[in-house]
Design a protein around this nucleic acid. Structure first.
Lengths: 190, 190
DNA sequence: ACCTGAACACCGTTCAAGT
DNA sequence: ACCTGAACACCGTTCAAGT
């Protein structure tokens, strides 16, 4: 709060004329972060000349746009996960994703739960991705620590998959998980 | 740190004889939290008299055990997501999940990425679940705020799915997402 | 070897007082 | 109406000094 106030040439206490708490400020930041998501996806949906109208392609675009929006800001995923905006951008994202699925023939329960599954996976993934990119903390993907623990302990399966586990290609990891969810939705659809 | 030290009848500074930073303490807590996961699942795997040896059932048990372990502690998901233990419990969980999939015929890349997908979804879901259960913060599932925003704005799809969106049956939400991932893995397997 | 006491440089938040 | 100045009750962390 003091740092933000400094950047605005003001005292920290002055911020409390606009936001009741730091949490409220963070919620407003989260709402702003996802502002680009729905608009960007709608534009592609409207302009798509090929088979881009497919429900699974639309859901994929929404998920990718959410990840991209979070990645565009330092600690974006952590801010988003730690707040719960009910503003038009956040609700608009939910409305779009649920809408795509309902119009594709999914039931209300399936559409609502698919929203949660896709959103929670996307946020969980991006949380991990941004943590791994932070200096001095690489998570499970910290090749050094994982490698040592792997050769020291007895983890044959981790040893065999080390190259993939320590890859920094987070886009590939994200796309794999997203594909699992979409293939799963296709199976649910009967 | 001061509160923990108080509970131990000691000064806060004394804790730094055992952990270099608060982060290290939290990492040790996360490692301890998941201690029960692998053992519990292994016991079921060994004792299962029916078709419980199925790879998808084993992965499901691992994911459920992780969620249960996180739910058993206040802010369990947040602590787990905010740290990156390379201790035997955390690596043992990864080893088990990757092992089940590799032995079921999945490739190294698929197994490693499936681990990330399942773990990130589980942590993302439980983060949301524990946030919703905290007082004064219900997230998207806060029926009141969501209801008002829904009738005020123009969100027909959210309005139609409100009953499901505001359900407090988080187990059902979790199971749905988990099923999507497992069905997706079945599809990947060719 | 382990802990105390005390400090350092911070936090989020409040509120009388100014203009 | 909006901001300052100053405080309150905290933080994580360090470190000489004790035993």
């Amino acid at each position: 709060m003091r740092r933000l106030a400094d950047a605005m040439g003001v005292q920290a206490g002055a911020l409390y004329r606009y936001f009741a708490t730091k949490q409220d400020l963070l919620t407003a930041m989260a709402e702003r972060m996802v502002g680009s998501v729905v608009d960007a996806v709608d534009a592609v949906d409207a302009a798509g000349p090929t088979g881009d109208g497919d429900w699974s392609a639309r859901v994929a675009r929404l998920a990718r746009a959410l990840r991209t929006a979070l990645l565009a800001h330092r600690d974006g995923a952590r801010v988003f996960a730690g707040t719960h905006s009910t503003g038009p951008n956040t609700l608009g994202f939910a409305e779009s994703l649920v809408g795509v699925l309902r119009e594709a023939g999914f039931g209300d329960g399936e559409a609502a739960r698919a929203l949660y599954a896709v959103a929670n996976f996307t946020v969980g993934h991006t949380l991990e991705e941004q943590a791994a990119l932070r200096p001095g903390d690489g998570g499970l993907t910290d090749a050094g620590a994982l490698y040592e623990a792997t050769v020291a302990g007895t983890y044959p399966h981790l040893a065999a998959t080390l190259p993939v586990l320590t890859t920094t290609d987070f886009t590939a990891h994200f796309e794999f998980g997203l594909r699992l969810l979409l293939d799963g939705l296709r199976a649910v659809r009967r």
